[in-house]
Design a protein around this nucleic acid. Structure first.
Length: 368
RNA sequence: GCGGGAGUAGAUCAAUUGGUUAGAUCAACAGAUUGUGAUUCUGUGGGUUGCGGGUUCGAGUCCCGUCUCCUGCC
């Protein structure tokens, strides 16, 4: 039994669970850190352990180009290569079908890309993606899908969903690494019936878990929740649900309340590198002048290494001068901030007051 | 003392033979960022063109004076 539900919230659809992987159990709801190129930018695996990170993401498209399958195979897989011995989830490259849309053309069996690095042409489809994820040896592999843009007309969405389903079936039929789970991905844009259809067809293929994809691609927030509501109810209760690309606290809380267990996002690491801290009182631009002499921590009450040891004044100085330590410390904080958020969310579910927790998060992080 | 060169935004520099509202890049400040093409992107503020005269319809630009700095020569 790879997924176990420990507790269900009464007022919302929130669940407390445990996902078992080849590299350990994951307490859900969980936020997973994005480490596209085999590193969560600016952090070591030791740092990740300290922040109590549970899962790290890798990216098939990017790792396939650099360093390439042979190098990672020679290292014995991604865990060994990057020396992260906890669970790894690999994205299939489906997001790059969206984010690198200028450099690719879709065909029946997959996608021709022109490398964003040197322009050379190469092919990535369900078969190639699963082969690469097998080499990576991730605990959870994602099916190769097409992440649809927003807006997207009905005809295109229909065609794309049909193709995503064909690709999902192809991925399902591929061989896996030892102990590797595979998750399907629900697409369908803003069209509820397409979402439902996609979810139901995926469920027939019997994946280990299911993701909601194609959200947070520029649509209004209500559309995002609508897409989750149009997908999650048609997924099996006893399997983990994962909304891809979400990392804003109140948005994750809303999704947890709708029965979602897993999230990932570049937000904490990216905005850290741009000088912004995630806190329970909303985002704080640490690079702002008003902190220039501030002797308080980045976030009051935070237990991370950055907040326990350094002042806003100092971290601001590091960011302002472009010092590497600034990127490191703020990344460390932001990663810890989201892990702490999830720890509190799990505690709230356990204690039966997740609804209030969610409302409080919304109120306090979105005020002003 | 004499000759030459240079003075323009906080910094480094642009600006056609004199011609619209003196620009650019850093810096500063503000905002974005959602399965990373991201140490990124967008925006804003900022000028007595060393100073004082003159010529001209019009001067950063030409002329005179003056100050400062750099450089060469005695």
């Amino acid at each position: 039994m790879p997924y176990q539900i420990l507790e269900k919230d009464k007022r919302t659809k929130a669940r407390l669970g445990r996902l078992f992987t080849a590299h350990g159990a994951v307490e859900t709801p969980v936020f997973m850190d994005v480490g596209t190129l085999g590193t969560v930018k600016a952090l070591t695996p030791r740092d990740l352990l300290e922040t109590r990170a549970q899962v790290v993401l890798g990216n098939t498209y990017h790792l396939m180009l650099r360093p390439g399958a042979e190098v990672i195979a020679a290292a014995g897989g991604l865990h060994e290569f990057m020396r992260w011995h906890g669970p790894i989830l690999t994205d299939s490259g489906g997001f790059q079908v969206f984010s690198l849309a200028k450099n690719r053309r879709i065909t029946e069996n997959g996608c021709w890309f022109n490398s964003h690095i040197d322009g050379h042409e190469f092919f990535l489809g369900p078969k190639e993606s699963m082969a690469m994820q097998r080499v990576l040896g991730s605990d959870i592999a994602m099916v190769f899908d097409e992440c649809l843009p927003y807006p997207c007309d009905r005809a295109r969405a229909e065609k794309s969903v049909a193709q995503t389903l064909r690709w999902a079936a192809a991925c399902r039929g591929e061989e896996r690494a030892a102990g590797q789970q595979v998750f399907g991905i629900v697409q369908g844009g803003v069209y509820d019936d397409l979402r439902r259809h996609c979810a139901e067809e995926l469920v027939k293929m019997d994946f280990d878990g299911y993701a909601v994809g194609g959200v947070s691609v520029g649509e209004p927030e209500e559309c995002m929740y609508a897409a989750v509501e149009a997908s999650v109810p048609f997924l099996p209760e006893e399997k983990p649900r994962y909304v891809m690309g979400l990392g804003v606290m109140h948005q994750m809380a809303e999704c947890i309340a709708r029965g979602v267990d897993m999230f990932d996002c570049v937000i904490p690491t990216r905005i850290a590198r741009h000088g912004t801290a995630i806190t329970r009182k909303g985002n704080v631009a640490i690079k702002a002048a008003k902190w220039i002499r501030d002797q308080g921590p980045v976030e009051e009450g935070c237990d991370c290494y950055c907040c326990r040891n350094f002042t806003r004044s100092y971290v601001r100085h590091l960011i302002a001068t472009g010092e590497l330590l600034g990127l490191h410390l703020l990344t460390l904080h932001n990663v810890r901030a989201l892990n702490r958020f999830m720890e509190d969310a799990r505690a709230a579910i356990r204690e039966g007051n997740f609804h209030d927790f969610k409302e409080q998060i919304r109120k306090e992080t979105t005020q002003q």
